[in-house]
């Protein structure tokens, strides 16, 4: 691995973000080339966390814009401070000092995007869940991400002093426009491998015992192979480890699993399905895990599933 990338990977790790190699390469590339990074993947694999880790590593601010349906420029970019404007018009009138210049920077309320553009030091700009916004907003972003300037009709054009390190995340609830994709580098993050996920648990929940953590990760990895509406993400794994740590359980028996399943599975159908149809197979898998690691665990689980 190139020393720069390796170093980045280590620094991210120190921030508690375990980056697989493609992730580290993509982040390094995005910051070297000054291009936005579009991150996609299933929910709960740490897409948003990338931006947080990046800002700690780079030692700059993190500015976050959460997208939603109907988001518009007044909540993403800027808004005039109307109360102040009206008040100052009246004041100017009362004091007879002529017209107040109510369309100047003093009256501008900065929203995340303008904040990012006007920062003296390049911040990390996180545009979260961009797929939730609509096409109109996407078209606006496109313009912003290519020119890094914004025009405020009353004021003129504001150009970025420093191009922010930009991360866009998407859950693929819809296709983003090709034009937007082309502006960005692309990174797909999948569920981590067993070893990586265990590393993540070690880094994020330091108090948890090694043996129980390994079994938990194995269990979650097996769950992801089952036909469920929504497979648990890494954040669910971490929650589950924390839950069991809190409950002071260091064995993963059927009753512990059943009583805490809600931490992992957020659909009632999924919970029902696991309780009624998959629990035996999962427990058999855990048995296999104790004797032969994750490969054996999956084999055992699939063998039991095939029988039933």
């Amino acid at each position: 691995m190139h020393p720069e990338i390796e170093q980045l990977q280590r620094r991210l790790e120190r921030q508690g973000y375990i980056a697989e190699r493609p992730v580290a390469t993509a982040i390094q590339l995005a910051s070297v080339l000054g291009r936005p990074l579009l991150v996609e993947g299933p929910t709960g694999v740490g897409k948003t966390a990338i931006a947080g880790a990046m800002s700690s590593v780079l030692g700059t601010n993190l500015i976050r814009l959460q997208c939603y349906e109907g988001i518009d420029t007044s909540s993403a970019l800027y808004e005039w401070n109307y109360q102040k404007q009206l008040l100052d018009i009246r004041l100017a009138e009362a004091s007879g000092s002529g017209r107040a210049d109510i369309f100047s920077v003093d009256y501008l309320l900065k929203r995340p995007l303008l904040e990012a553009i006007t920062s003296p030091k390049a911040p990390v700009l996180l545009i979260d869940e961009v797929d939730r916004s609509d096409e109109e907003f996407e078209a606006f972003l496109l313009e912003l991400l290519s020119d890094w300037q914004v025009s405020v009709p009353e004021l003129g054009t504001l150009t970025a002093r420093q191009v922010p390190y930009t991360v866009l995340t998407s859950n693929r609830t819809r296709d983003l426009a090709d034009a937007l994709r082309r502006r960005c580098l692309y990174l797909w993050i999948d569920y981590p491998s067993f070893d990586k996920e265990l590393d993540i648990v070690r880094a994020r929940v330091p108090g948890a015992g090694e043996a129980i953590s390994a079994r938990i990760v194995a269990f979650v990895q097996m769950l992801r192979r089952l036909p469920l509406e929504k497979a648990p993400g890494v954040s669910e794994t971490l929650d589950w480890v924390a839950t069991l740590l809190y409950l002071d359980r260091n064995r993963l028996g059927p009753e512990v699993i059943e009583s805490t399943l809600g931490v992992l599975l957020k659909h009632v159908e999924d919970q029902r399905r696991v309780r009624s149809r998959f629990l035996q197979a999962l427990l058999a898998g855990l048995g296999g895990f104790d004797s032969g690691g994750i490969t054996r665990a999956v084999e055992q689980m699939e063998a039991v599933l095939a029988q039933s």
Partner: peptide, 20 residues
Amino acid sequence: FGIADRGDFFHALRTLFAGS
């Protein structure tokens, strides 16, 4: 980044060229 490492080379090109 040089080309000392096939992995870096591969991941870098993929980040640039693949979009979905």
